[in-house]
Design a protein around this nucleic acid. Sequence first.
DNA 1: AAATCCTGTC
Length: 670
Amino acid sequence: MRKGIYSRVCTHPPVISNAILSSTRSLMAIFVSPHFFTTFATSATLTNSESEQEEEDEEGFNTSCGVIQEKDFLRKTQNGKLHLLDLIDNDRMEPDAALYNKLLNKCTQMSKLKEGRMVHTHFLNSQFKHYQVIQNTVLNMYAKCGSLEEARRVFDEMPTKDMVTWTALITGYSQNDRPEEALVLFPPMLRLDLKPNHFTFSSLLKASAARPSDREGRQIHGFCLKYGYDLNVYVGSALVDMYARCGYMNEAMFVFDGMISKNEVSWNALIAGYARKDEGENAVQLFMEMQRKDFKPTHFTYSSVFTGCASTGALEQGKWVHGHMIKSGLKLIAFVGNTLLDMYAKSGSIEDAKKVFDRLIRRDVVSWNSMLSACAQHGLGKETVERFEEMLRIGVEPNGIAFLCVLTACSHAGLLDKGQYYFELMKKYLVEPDVSHYVTIVDLLGRAGRLDLAERFIKEMPIEPTAAVWGALLGACRMHKNMELGAYAAERVFELDPYDSGPHVLLSNIYASAGRWSDAAKVRKMMRESGVKKEPACSWVEIENVVHLFVANDDAHPQREDIRKMWEEISARIKEIGYVPDTSHVLLFVDQQERETKLQYHSEKLALAFALLNAPPGSTIRIKKNIRVCGDCHTAFKFVSKLLDREIILRDTNRFHHFRGGFCSCGDYW
DNA sequence: AAATCCTGTC
């Protein structure tokens, strides 16, 4: 869908970021219930998830419940201390069946497991203990409060189970990230001749969406059709989501288009699907379309659209969506705030990302991680470390991702000792390193030139090294021109992941820079024979709300002649101030002259020439690339930033490069 | 008198 990005005009106005950020509304109201349920809820500190629920229904009981009247509750509880169950016992009031249901549902809604257990116990001692409906409600309460084991026990002990019983348990597993256990319940339920309905199917689809394969999902889809629930809006949305998560956007779109009634959730599922696939432009288009059709974007929508904008790095678009959210009056709750922060960071505006972070009233671990990641990506190694230290100081528990961010920052900034220190610190915080942490340490040691230590580290690591681990060593070998160890590392990568083009390219680069062209050729032959393909490189640049996309040697662009002339001129002028084309990255058996020509039209150079022609004079140029920037382009960009006194920000797959005055923020590590 | 779908950091 990259083609969709190509020179598409975005039909929205640009918005100035400072204006947006200064008016960013702050966060959610703290959830305070004026009713007796504050007492009922005990003195529990409210967790994030509860207090950030927007527009929480705080009603308590406003209707009379059988023999106990509302006024009885209010009178007894306004003096503060009396517990609900004490109230029932002490006053010897008998709740009726409906009251048990209401109490249980209130516990479910407020996620109060302990109180739920007490109501359950009380219910078991009542005359209604055989009521199936209430047993189902009990089951549901345990499942929703996350205690699947208790839910299961209720289920197992129920003498008769109806379809709701089964569905409630399926939903419980499905909502608590246990998709396999949800799915295995379906066949026995069918064998008992219980007819699934739209409740059952939406939960089953959610469970199958969490599975890596689309196999179960497609089967459930078949059952939906058979039982005639495919047109239900919940089932439809779940189907859209299931296909979208499995990566089948065409099928997701097909189901979506076939839905007779849609709601916001249906749109959100589709938009989230495109955002996950890095098709930000499609996400934004759908965001606009849903509003044309009178659907109101929710937090889910904004969250996904920001993620989409982050993927394309479309800063102006992202700002526009941000402005839209402010106007709509939705609050900046943590979930959305974190995606917003991430969007600004990934679009190249670390300043705006910091502003969002500063304006968040409550920061959860993901907010911190997003900020750490932003700093690390922008080459602010020292600041990443400082922020990480601050995070520890104020008592935010770092998780694996937090450590990964700080380790990456240390690696890129060449902070060898600090990196090793933080790796050790993981033990203290009881964070188990996964393979990505090991990769980063290999990278850290390797970049610092300690190839010997890196190799030993791999040999001694407690888990089996993956292709990525050896790949990190290979990258370091290329950087430090160690052919022998590089070839060894490459062999290991080929064994473990024969289809990745990266190591082949790296290895041939190592050979090429040593002038061993026949070895380089062998690697290329290997690539051809094993069917390994290098991902086509492309770069894009956003100018006045239009995203322009370039591929290497692009000769289809309307301005191709001007672009070519521009780069030739620039190229000549930077050569005068010291630029020497580095042709070792070009793996072609051609003479020097021709290799230089090939290099000239790498997509990022085309994008830069185009931006110099079309962007407002003196403005910062922001270019994105879908693979890592090549060494020659990196050098050329440094010279251009000096020659024209122009700031250039290049985003590649790993990080940002801020070019200014002849230097790059990455310090030539990348 | 019960049960359902969509969001974040690597």
